[in-house]
Design a protein around this nucleic acid. Structure first.
Length: 273
DNA sequence: CGGCTTTGACCTGCGC
DNA sequence: GCGCAGGTCAAAGCCG
């Protein structure tokens, strides 16, 4: 649990200009509400952060008296990397390792609500995937499906899809890496008549990269998805959408941690100024 | 016939 | 070193 990340929050709002005044005011209200919640979370974060530091210090005293905890936790990896660098340490290999680690670090998680009767593990996210495995894991009786981007090996992105253990109607997709090509088909995302998949897609991903944690709200996807529906312009629909997004985001532990890191990073930047 | 899914076997990393 | 669990491979089958 680290809160010292750099602020790296991106809101992709470049899809289309807002056309309706009521839409603008609704978004302003939502922004105010989020700001208030942000403030509340900041206060919570301060308390949690203090408690965490105290506990960490206590733990270090008990576990490793006189030993640095970071060194202790990284002991295994340090030994492995050390032996590798001693045996055949070249610049190329180290660069390659860094690149691999960088790719590995770009992990994001997306929650997708589906119909309870829908037993497939397919998420229509605009990319084309090739399933290469399925496994039942210990912590979840629902099988986990493994997908590779169909552009592999050119595109190294992989994803794992598994039903949430708490809510079987929710698919948890873990994306590993970043696509080096555009969406294969945006039509696939928009023209599907079974819009429950798209409706449940929370366009938020949290990731912990080398440059710090990031939160990405991809509202373009959401917009294109909803444009296909005739219900799009109704206030009830928008309200439902906002509530669903907010509820899913607050349930996401990754989002909370990334938000906490982003807030703390922002504070650090402000105090530095 | 080509592409995709399924599924059992195999590989690898990690904890004990 | 061993066992376990997660991840990957690859052959077989299915489908358009």
């Amino acid at each position: 649990m680290e809160f010292n990340g750099l602020l790296n929050t991106s809101l992709d709002l470049n899809a289309e200009p807002l056309r309706y005044p009521d839409e603008r005011s609704a978004l302003v209200d939502e922004l105010k509400r989020v700001n208030a919640e942000n403030k509340r979370l900041t206060e919570m974060l301060t308390v949690v952060s203090e408690n965490y530091n105290e506990l960490q210090m206590e733990y270090n005293k008990i576990k490793n008296p006189g030993l640095d905890n970071t060194a202790a936790s990284n002991k295994r990896k340090a030994v492995i990397n050390g032996s590798a660098s001693e045996s055949s340490s070249s610049d190329e290999e180290s660069c390659k390792k860094l690149r691999e680690e960088h790719i590995k670090a770009k992990i994001s998680r997306v929650y997708v609500r589906t119909q309870a009767s829908d037993t497939s593990l397919i998420i229509k996210d605009g990319y084309q995937w090739r399933k290469y495995g399925q496994k039942v894991t210990r912590d979840n009786p629902c099988p986990r499906a493994y997908f590779k981007c169909s552009y592999a090996p050119t595109c190294p992105v992989k994803k794992k899809v598994q039903r949430s253990v708490e809510d079987r109607s929710v698919l948890v997709a873990t994306y590993d890496g970043e696509h080096n090509h555009p969406h294969t088909s945006k039509l696939e995302m928009t023209s599907d008549s079974n819009s429950s998949v798209i409706l449940g897609l929370v366009p938020c991903s949290t990731s912990l990269g080398l440059s710090g944690p990031s939160i990405t709200l991809d509202l373009t996807k959401q917009k294109t998805s909803y444009n296909s529906s005739s219900k799009v312009s109704t206030p009830e629909f928008r309200k439902c959408l906002v509530e669903q997004m907010a509820s899913t985001l607050t349930k996401d532990p990754n989002f909370k941690s990334a938000l906490a890191a982003a807030i703390s990073g922002n504070f650090l930047q402000q105090t530095e100024r």
